[in-house]
Design a binder for these strands. Structure first.
Length: 663
RNA sequence: GCUGGCGUAGCUCAGUCGGUAGAGCAUCUGAUUUGUAAUCAGAGGGUCGGGGGUUCGAAUCCCUUCGCCAGCUCCA
């Protein structure tokens, strides 16, 4: 029959139904249980043409007009959760309008872990309001109100929203639709939203949700615009999932490097000294020393030279480098000295350039690789500081490579190798790589010629391909002076952190008139590469703390071993073993305090010390130690010499685990 | 910088209506000499973030300033 259409289901079967049948009705034909569980449908045109059209999600209530492949999505489909959360956002908006009808609506999408809705209202919402809103949402769920879709002529829709004073909705309609179009509206009780959907059938389907917090957000993300109140929430298919999520949030909080930094006495930030400035305490200091030693050793191994440059330099230098123009809003103010004005350095590059420029370079000298653990100061706006991750003073493992155009690909390849080796040694093994390129249309924000950009981007790309590194290209995200490769690492709980970066620069060599004498005796401009692998030692440390939740591998642990003598008479033996450990460079303490062994174990366990060695009569007589390994329930006895050998090996190999054998 | 919240002992936090600042842990002293996550007792410790105001009286109410937290914007 001409009025019938064919609906192909995921199991390969085919149903012939009248045109205009809804996805929900098809679900009912399959099974009432499926219809009950159904949340949203996914369609794509039949495979007459290769592949068919891209799949789209649609409301269950939408009539099917032509032959299609159909999949009914339920709680088992992750895509359905996105829709469910978007519908949760509408539920939130509906509740807010019931309680505070004067509120104007922005937009309310699903996010990675929940949803939000933006509101404009004179008086701010309070935490108590949040509770009321949540209760109202609960009521609306009880009422099981459908998410009803309608189409309105654009003018009529605009008029309706304008009447309500919903200036933001009007903006969206004008922005996203054409005058001749009908606009899509969803109605949930009194609440009407301009929205493409799709949505779940009705509010009754929402089983578990929670409003989390209120925060400010600029209208259209522009800080010149008025600020809206953004209410964040999350929702899940079951109470159990929601509780699990909330528990996970708590776990993440426990890993917070600011909390652990205090508990483990690693670092502090002092109000008297100023925000965004880090004080490294002895225990953090040891870890920093390990990081610095590691990096300096690698610099030398890989053909870098170590340099040191001043922290304040004349303003004129920053004018030459262009930082006075491009970067001054991020620099500390100038300070007047008797001869000139000086500024704290926000970057190390100009310093390294001056070293390069101090003396004529031959092509035989290249590449010149100048590395420094360079401390820089940047003025960050007061609201953006965050523990170790965003600070005003930090130390970069910064190096600049000056080379010939022919050498560039080899240098880039070596940098990437160096970067991955670094991250791996610190216990990270998953990465995402990004190539940031320019936007040829946006000449204002990118210096250099088209030829320079193309050449630079091609060489970066070539290296990535040759090294078989998977990467994403991000157009328009390059630095103004050249394209770059960023490496993001994935931490123990799956979060991404951007630290390592390798950047091309064709701006500074030109500004400083850098040159080298080529084979034919002519003067040529070297190519310059900026690269930082930790990025900032502070930030890298912060990420390390969270990655390990404070339980560092032995080689990084501030205290690697604590000797616990059972009573006073065992202290001497404990000291003897400690001396043996110290002799091979182990950081060991003897806890001979007049405390119970249990209390000592508890304390050092909380400090996440990798090994606690209990020694009493038994051990002292046999020359043994009783080893309590962090994270292991059972203790083990072994000769002191064996433990010394074992820990020596763990440290030398920078082993990420506490076991001597890999498996 | 913006919106909202918060700031009490070294730390974590309680403090009702505006009416004499509290607990646990930590610290110090003493006792105890200990077998795998907190021994007992006693003591000391406070510009209630800073400044100003209202009041007979302010940790509490108001103003202001600094700092912290969440988010936005911006970034290594």
């Amino acid at each position: 029959m001409a009025d019938n259409i064919h609906v192909k289901l995921p199991d390969g079967s085919d149903k012939e139904v009248p045109k205009g049948t809804t996805a929900l009705e098809v679900a009912k034909l399959i099974s009432p249980r499926l219809a009950d569980a159904a949340l949203v449908a996914k369609i794509s045109s039949n495979g007459d043409h290769a592949g068919g059209s891209a799949p789209t999600l649609i409301d269950l209530a939408r009539p099917l007009e032509k032959d299609t492949q159909l999949r009914i999505l339920t709680e088992k489909d992750p895509e359905a959760l996105q829709v469910y959360r978007h519908s949760s956002a509408h539920l939130l908006a509906a509740a807010v309008l019931e309680l505070f009808p004067e509120t104007k609506l922005g937009h309310g999408p699903a996010t990675e872990s929940g949803f939000f809705y933006d509101f404009y209202r004179e008086t701010p919402f309070t935490p108590e309001d949040l509770e009321k809103i949540e209760k109202k949402m609960q009521e609306l769920v009880q009422q099981n109100i459908p998410y009803a879709r309608e189409f309105l002529p654009r003018d009529q829709g605009l008029a309706e929203f304008k009447k309500e004073g919903d200036f933001m909705k009007c903006h969206f309609i004008e922005q996203f639709t054409r005058p001749d179009e009908k606009i899509s509206i969803y109605r949930t009780g009194k609440f009407i939203d301009f929205c493409r959907g799709p949505h779940i059938p009705s509010t009754g389907k929402i089983k578990a949700f929670k409003l989390l917090n209120i925060a400010g957000a600029y209208w259209l993300g522009d800080e010149k615009n008025p600020q809206l109140q953004r209410i964040y929430g999350t929702s899940f298919f079951s109470k159990k999932d929601l509780e699990e999520y909330l528990k996970q949030v708590e776990e993440t909080k426990k890993r917070d490097h600011r909390v652990l930094g205090k508990q483990l006495d690693l670092f502090s930030i002092q109000e008297l000294a100023g925000p965004g400035l880090i004080f490294w305490h002895p225990k953090g200091g040891i870890i920093r020393k390990e990081m610095e030693d590691w990096m300096r050793e690698q610099y030398l191994k890989r053909g870098y030279s170590l340099v040191y440059t001043p922290h304040v330099m004349r303003r004129q230098l920053w004018q030459t480098s262009g930082h006075e123009g491009y970067y001054s809003q991020n620099m500390f103010d100038a300070m007047e000295l008797d001869d000139a004005e000086y500024r704290l350095k926000p970057m190390n590059c100009p310093g390294h350039i001056l070293i390069y420029r101090d003396g004529l370079k031959s092509y035989r000298d290249l590449p010149v690789r100048l590395g420094e653990l360079g401390t820089v100061y940047r003025y960050e706006r007061s609201g953006v500081m965050h523990g170790l991750l965003r600070v005003r003073g930090f130390t970069q493992d910064d190096a600049h490579i000056f080379c010939t155009p022919e050498q560039i690909e080899g240098e880039i390849a070596a940098c990437l190798e160096f970067a991955f080796d670094t991250l791996k040694d610190f216990g990270f093994d998953k990465f995402q790589t990004e190539l940031s390129t320019w936007n040829p249309q946006d000449r204002k924000n990118f210096v250099g010629s088209e030829e320079q950009w193309n050449h630079a981007q091609q060489s970066l790309e070539k290296v990535l391909k040759e090294k078989k590194i998977e990467y994403k290209t991000i157009p328009g995200e390059a630095a103004f002076y050249g394209p770059k490769i960023d490496i993001k690492l994935v931490d123990a709980i799956g979060r991404l952190w951007q630290l390592s970066t390798v950047q091309f620069d064709f701006n500074l060599p030109q500004r400083f008139g850098l040159e080298y004498v080529a084979e034919d005796g002519s003067r040529k401009q070297p190519v310059m590469v900026h690269r930082a692998l930790y990025g900032s030692i502070e930030r890298f440390f912060g990420v390390l703390i969270e990655h390990y939740a404070g339980a560092f591998p032995v080689w990084l642990s501030p205290v690697q071993v604590v000797m616990i003598p059972i009573s006073e008479r065992h202290a001497e033996y404990a000291r003897k073993v400690a001396d043996q450990l110290r002799a091979i460079g182990v950081r060991v303490e003897v806890d001979a305090r007049n405390e119970k062994m249990n209390a000592k174990i508890r304390e050092h366990a909380l400090q996440k010390v990798p090994f606690l060695l209990v020694v009493g009569d038994k051990e002292a007589e046999a020359g043994k130690v009783n080893v309590r390994t962090r994270g292991k329930e059972k203790t083990e006895d072994m000769p002191a010499a064996e433990f010394v050998e074992k820990i020596g090996k763990l440290i030398a190999e920078k082993r990420a685990t506490l076991c001597a054998d890999p498996k």
